[in-house]
């Protein structure tokens, strides 16, 4: 298949395309017509499953409540997250057809004529989940128990950022361990589990570096949010050098203080009645698998024995 994505590239882009091509040739990822939308092979999934067990064992002391949500959630909750204000370019909202036969006939005529038919659709009451912890916050309205709560969330996220870099998928899984409760405890949770995540990922042979980071807030309005996030060190990413000296490294996990951003919007309070704070430890599942493939090679049979053992490969 000729790859329409490969034309006029910088060295970094070439390296990304090269890695993508290796993954496709090895059959680990299966390309689709959309950039950043892939199928996964059984081997890829085996590594991901092994990684997930490592993370579950790591976080066992948390006694987290495990919850699983589908990859869509209510538009009304999406409104409360402010996501459309901060990341309009990454959002994905679901639309469907609510007309009758007459409108359907118009849609079919437009489609037959090769015109856009999206205009015949109406926004549905669900959106694609961008951050997999957002559906959780919607379930926590009211008062938290004394000491707060810890939740284990695994699910599919969507970000509209088509890219040839296999590390930047549009549809991917995250495994998050979320604390919601007292502000001091939230900060301590973030710092403690950041260190444990570094140890766990290093134990898999990944050369991770913690880096103060910011979310890709959109536009001029976003600059204000970025300045606050960086100044207060709210987000720390664990990065791995995927493309040598061409790039400073790609995040495979992050530890974040959400403070009261989501809890205030969703009306979540501590046992004492104050606005609760949230913090989370988040692992990009596909990104971490890809980092393992980059570091240890594309043939998992050749990986170091201790890494294979940890991942039960």
């Amino acid at each position: 298949m000729t790859d329409i994505l490969e034309t006029g590239l910088t060295p970094l882009e070439e390296a990304r395309h090269g890695f993508r091509r290796e993954l496709l040739d090895a059959g680990l990822l299966i390309a689709s017509a959309s950039a950043g939308v892939y199928g996964r092979s059984a081997t890829f999934e085996a590594v991901l499953t092994g990684l997930d067990r490592v993370l579950t064992e790591l976080t066992a002391p948390l006694n987290a409540t495990a919850l699983r949500f589908p990859p869509v959630y209510p538009r009304a909750d999406f409104e409360l997250t402010d996501y459309i204000a901060s990341f309009p370019d990454l959002s994905g909202v679901v639309s469907s057809f609510e007309g009758g036969d007459r409108e359907h006939r118009e849609l079919l005529a437009a489609r037959e004529a090769g015109e856009r038919w999206d205009g015949y659709l109406t926004p549905a009451d669900v959106v694609l989940t961008n951050a997999i912890c957002h559906p959780l916050y919607a379930t926590l309205r009211g008062r938290m128990p004394a000491g707060g709560g810890v939740y284990d969330i695994l699910g599919w996220g969507f970000r509209h950022e088509p890219s040839a870099d296999p590390m930047r998928m549009q549809s991917f899984r995250m495994h998050e361990f979320v604390y919601v409760g007292e502000p001091d405890a939230a900060q301590e949770y973030r710092d403690t589990w950041l260190d444990k995540a570094v140890d766990a990922l290093s134990g898999l042979g990944l050369p991770v570096t913690p880096v103060a980071a910011n979310d890709p807030f959109f536009g001029r309005a976003g600059r204000m949010l970025v300045s606050e996030q960086l100044r207060d060190n709210l987000k720390v990413e664990l990065t791995v050098p995927m493309y040598g000296d061409l790039h400073e490294g790609t995040a495979i996990a992050s530890a974040n203080c959400q403070r009261d951003h989501l809890t205030a919007a969703f009306g979540i309070r501590t046992a004492g009645g104050e606005v609760a704070h949230g913090a989370c430890l988040a692992f990009g599942m596909e990104r971490t698998v890809l980092a393992l493939l980059r570091v240890h090679g594309l043939d998992v049979n050749d990986w170091p024995l201790d890494v294979r053992a940890r991942l039960a490969l």
Binding site: D82, A85, S86, R220, A221, M224, L225, H261
Partner: peptide
């Protein structure tokens, strides 16, 4: 909130015809 301050910033730009 942080997000409210963004809206304040944009509204100030309109009101004073300035750009921060």
């Amino acid at each position: 909130s942080s997000h409210a301050s963004v809206n304040v910033m944009l509204a100030l730009e309109d009101a004073f015809e300035v750009e921060f």
